[in-house]
């Protein structure tokens, strides 16, 4: 079972993707999608650098909604900053964040979260993965931001991946 389906969740997601793309659940499409979901992870298995081990699905769901809320809030924040940038220029600067998260997959998800959220851009990661350089659009207090970043995103990712 493990050899046939190296990544069961990926297979399932590919199957669902195929059905949604074709907008049908006819038997032919069900079969084609299943073949795709079966073959693609098998062929990609040699490329895969690190196996993903995920624990605590509840934390994932909570993180998902937290990121959704934060994205909407920071959208409004950045929009307001753009509208008022004539009178009050945004206080943009680089922030160095010490990281505790070491897992490569966790770091990938963290970089996705920071790049998707408007107002933060992931700029550079130290080679030993201990320091992250982040560019922030409008920042009040460095220490408070770092504290929030570590509490809100890094801690749940460490719980999920480590």
């Amino acid at each position: 079972m493990k050899r046939l389906f190296p990544a069961p969740w990926l297979s399932l997601a590919l199957w669902a993707l195929w059905l949604v793309l074709n907008l049908s659940i006819s038997p032919g499409n069900l079969l084609l999608g299943a073949i795709l979901g079966f073959l693609a992870p098998l062929m990609m298995a040699p490329l895969r650098p690190l196996p993903v081990r995920i624990r605590r699905p509840g934390v994932i769901i909570r993180l998902f909604f937290l990121v959704g809320r934060d994205v909407i809030l920071s959208n409004l924040h950045v929009a307001w900053g753009i509208l008022t940038c004539g009178t009050r220029p945004p206080r943009s600067r680089f922030v160095k964040i010490p990281l505790d998260l070491r897992d490569a997959n966790g770091l990938a998800v963290l970089s996705m979260i920071t790049s998707v959220t408007p107002g933060t851009v992931w700029s550079e990661l130290a080679l030993d993965r201990s320091i992250l350089l982040l560019h922030v659009f409008d920042l009040d207090d460095d220490a408070q931001f770092i504290e929030h970043f570590k509490q809100a995103y890094e801690r749940p990712l460490m719980e999920i991946f480590e």
Binding site: V71, I72, N75, V78, A79, I82, L83, C85, G86, P89, P90, S92, F94, S115, V116, T117, P118, G119, V121, S123, H135, F137
Partner: peptide, 26 residues
Amino acid sequence: LLGAIGLLRMKDFFQRMHPPALASTL
């Protein structure tokens, strides 16, 4: 539109990286 305005008005390249995220998220 706000993203485009931001892209045009911001002074520094790293500041300009933020506004396009408005269109690609919300």
